[in-house]
Design a protein around this nucleic acid. Structure first.
Lengths: 233, 233
DNA sequence: CGTCGGATTGAGAACGTTCAAGGGGCGTGG
DNA sequence: CCACGCCCCTTGAACGTTCTCAATCCGACG
């Protein structure tokens, strides 16, 4: 499993001067764990449960994490997919209001929130960086309201693929979908059957090409963007 | 129009020591405007447009505000209703990504964000308060994902009424719905007809009683909570 | 008293779900 | 190495919830 350069460096414009923001790549495991503890999770393993004390923030080094909630009747909603380089764990003030699981075998670094708080109050500019980061997250969440409230199934799936493509940043427009159709459905507020049908439809229309059920390549980005009804800002 | 005691006091547990947190009620307009500018908007008037510089934060003194976005084909989504005492305007890092309108005739106070930033960096504890506030907003947004992605129309309407009842804090379980059925629909990801039908249904089942189309009273809170499928945490 | 915007109600259509069956990939065990 | 089983994915058909279109109603206001 490839280990990415880590730290809290996926932060906003003024890169976070938090000590962990240095690249971890070449560091010894001992030093790395002094800044943030490295944890490994097997596919399906729980990182934290709903209700747990939210005393850490996590960064995905490799793999993928989903944060979910399950309703009493079994309906599940996925709030967020954290991919390589993404932070997660900000789903509650005191206690986690979602649970987090590994989508695939995953390596994360856990940073005590206390340290972040101290860093924010200590370093000049840190408060601004941190604030910008949470504000960006808030803004992204609001965009998702529109997705879930006003977009059709086809638009959601197309937008999801584009989002993954942009986050993946692969040169050849290939998309790695580590999660199952069920996961995608629970992220988009659909059913796995609908997701499957819509992916098939995109394949039939030569907009995407399948390379195994968890890897796609965008053949016609323009058409995909049209289906996502991209209205930027 | 009744004017509430104002300031940024609707903030998290450790009340914000931002200068404007003092009650405005008895102050002269001159002094009030030195801290935050008081603005009045007629029903339907725009507070800010999508794309405007997000250089202020607003507090509703009286009335109600909606923050919305409209898709190219006319579909509209309302991200947030700001009622008496609520803050709004945090819908973008640099520029507003939604527009804000007055639902009814409304009085708001506009605080320059610059002042808030300065206050956060100046006052001890302010950073923590502010951070907690944005984190609470982020958490609330995540809860809304479940609402929009996994709840039925009936559950959404019931939960919406309970939310308004709790925010309104009226002793007699009466709910003031300043917004139209269209607004409610665009907030819940439904159509106005569906909202209307479900409200009629609640009325027929003696769960709520109508007191004019913009005021309801909860007759049977237990039944309403059951329909909202309340699963706390 | 008439007009207008919003609210309500009905009927039919559509989108997405549900239920059901079949297929395929992968790991495990024989 | 092959067979089996387990997921997960795919596809089909029927169903149901919600939307769309349309008519009517109601209350506020001139």
């Amino acid at each position: 499993m490839q280990v990415a350069s880590a730290g809290l460096s996926s932060m906003p414009s003024p890169a976070l001067p938090f000590p962990v923001s240095v690249a971890f790549s070449g560091m010894s495991p001992a030093f790395r764990s002094a800044l943030g503890r490295t944890l490994r999770f097997q596919r399906g393993a729980e990182v934290y449960a709903e209700g747990n004390l939210a005393d850490h923030l996590y960064k995905v080094v490799a793999g993928a994490i989903r944060t979910c909630r399950i309703l009493p009747d079994g309906r599940r909603m996925i709030a967020h997919f954290a991919l390589q380089g993404d932070l997660f764990g900000l789903d509650g003030v005191q206690h986690h209001r979602f649970f987090a699981e590994a989508v695939t075998d995953t390596v994360v670094i856990a940073f005590p929130r206390k340290e972040i708080t101290e860093w924010v109050s200590r370093e000049p500019g840190a408060a601004h960086s941190w604030n910008t980061y949470t504000l960006e997250k808030l803004t992204a969440a609001q965009d998702r309201f529109i997705m879930l409230g006003r977009r059709t199934a086809a638009e959601r799936v197309a937008a999801f693929l584009l989002d993954l493509a942009d986050r993946g940043q692969r040169p050849d427009e290939s998309i790695d979908l580590p999660m199952s159709r069920y996961d995608i459905a629970d992220y988009l507020g659909l059913t796995s059957e609908t997701v499957s049908r819509l992916l098939s439809n995109l394949r039939k229309n030569r907009i995407i090409a399948e390379q195994g059920s968890h890897r796609f390549r965008i053949l016609n980005r323009e058409a995909l963007e049209e289906r996502a009804d991209e209205e930027s800002i």
